[in-house]
Design a protein around this nucleic acid. Structure first.
Length: 94
DNA sequence: TATCTGACGATAG
DNA sequence: CCTATCGCCAGAT
C-alpha cells in the first residue's frame, strides 16, 4: 500500500527473493545478488541491506573474491561449514 | 536538494 | 598478501 515515505521496498524485496532462493550450501557474491535482483552494480547497497535487515541469510553471501564478511567471518565460516561449504583460509572454496 | 555512510568491486602500489 | 584509492549504488539525515 502506501510506501511513499519509506525506502525502496522494491530493492529490498528483490534482494530478499534472491536470498530466499538460495539453498543450504549455495553461496553467492554481493555483486551476483545485486545483478540477480535487477540492480547490477549495487553490491554495496546489498551489503548494507543484509546488515540492516534481520531474517536474511547473510552468511550465504560473500565478496567477489570469496572473502567472508568482516566482523563475523568466524561465525559465517561456522554456518557455511555446517551446510557443507568448504572454507579455505577464511575464503569460500568453489 | 545536498551530503555522508557502508557485510562491495576493481585497480594500483 | 597487504593497504590505499576510486567508482558504483541505495539509504539515512
Amino acid at each position: 500500500m502506501d510506501r511513499g515515505n519509506g525506502p525502496d521496498d522494491d530493492f529490498t524485496a528483490a534482494v530478499t527473493v534472491v536470498l530466499e532462493a538460495l539453498r543450504p550450501g549455495e553461496v553467492m557474491a554481493y555483486e551476483e545478488v545485486a545483478a540477480e535482483a535487477g540492480y547490477p552494480g549495487a553490491a554495496r547497497a546489498v551489503g548494507n541491506l543484509l546488515r540492516r535487515t534481520p531474517g536474511l541469510p547473510w552468511w550465504r553471501v560473500v565478496t567477489s573474491t570469496g572473502r567472508l564478511v568482516p566482523g563475523g567471518e568466524a561465525e559465517q565460516a561456522a554456518r557455511l561449514r555446517a551446510e557443507g561449504v568448504v572454507i579455505r583460509s577464511g575464503r569460500v572454496v568453489r
